[in-house]
């Protein structure tokens, strides 16, 4: 399978700039996100990690006064092109946010929400979808007897796995995580990390993380950002053991946090 033949799952960012009003939040980012790998974006607070991640599914546009220039190619198509339908971009990107946001409905309806808004009406198919993706997120055994109770009744760790299943149910190509374990206890965090490692064979995964240790545990590829710029990126082992740039060196050795 040649790379050109199969563009699916690829992301190239070219000269991406983001301005919040006057503030230049992301400065000329250029990067290619490796396909079917887990990429971790690391860097100190306020470096633009989350802003960058919000470009992937254009959630950044929910902020006022945002100005974006450059190209963000997903499967070869610039997602900021005005002709692109925003819903089709977002459908390609499953998002796991900092803390779980179960929708105000039952566990079952949380999973079927995505398929339903995209027009799925077949009840048997949806029941299969629910079971399949809850199993994928390792939640099925815990909730199979109470699928119709409110999702908010689940523990926070279960809620995050529910959100993962909900995201997978729209059949995305990418999974985005915005510090997805920061609100979870260690055991729930481990669950999610393990899931990510399993899922990277099928999806291209991009995770923003605050924890260098987490990046070490799960990342194949690392992007280090500082003050809105990408300072360095490369395979995780190389970048962590032998950083080229002084700023990266300071960050991974704990001189800067």
């Amino acid at each position: 399978m040649s790379q050109i033949e199969n563009n699916k799952g690829s992301i190239q960012v070219q000269n991406l700039n983001v301005y919040y009003g006057e503030r230049h939040a992301l400065k000329n980012l250029n990067i290619e996100i490796p396909k079917h790998k887990l990429t971790a974006i690391i860097g100190p607070s306020g470096c633009g990690k989350t802003t960058f991640l919000k470009c992937f599914n254009r959630l950044i546009e929910t902020n006022e006064n945002v100005n974006i220039t450059g190209q963000f190619l997903v499967d070869g198509q610039n997602i900021f092109d005005p002709k692109v339908e925003i819903t089709s971009i977002r459908k390609k990107m499953g998002l796991l946010s900092q803390r779980p946001y179960p929708l105000p409905m039952s566990i079952y309806d949380n999973i079927t929400y995505g398929p339903r808004i995209h027009g799925e009406r077949n009840k048997t198919k949806m029941a299969e979808t629910v079971e399949y993706y809850l199993k994928q997120a390792s939640l099925w055994e815990e909730v199979k007897d109470r699928l119709h109770s409110p999702a908010s009744a689940l523990s926070i760790g279960q809620q995050q796995r529910l959100c993962l299943a909900r995201g997978l149910a729209v059949a995305p190509e990418f999974i985005l995580g915005d510090e997805p374990t920061s609100a979870l206890d260690p055991i729930s965090s481990k669950h999610i990390e393990q899931k990510f490692i399993e899922l990277k064979n099928q999806y291209t995964i991009v995770v923003v993380t605050h924890s260098l240790r987490q990046a070490r545990r799960i990342a194949d590829y690392i992007v280090f950002m500082y003050l809105g710029e990408i300072i360095e990126h490369g395979p995780a082992k190389e970048l962590l053991s032998n950083p080229q740039h002084q700023l990266t060196k300071d960050y991974v050795t704990g001189e800067m946090s």
Binding site: L59, S97, L103
Partner: peptide, 18 residues
């Protein structure tokens, strides 16, 4: 109603009205 909750719906590909 938190922004994160609305973003959860948007990120699944829902329109604003949905």
């Amino acid at each position: 109603v938190s922004k994160g909750l609305k973003e959860a719906s948007l990120s699944l590909g829902a329109t604003k009205w949905q």
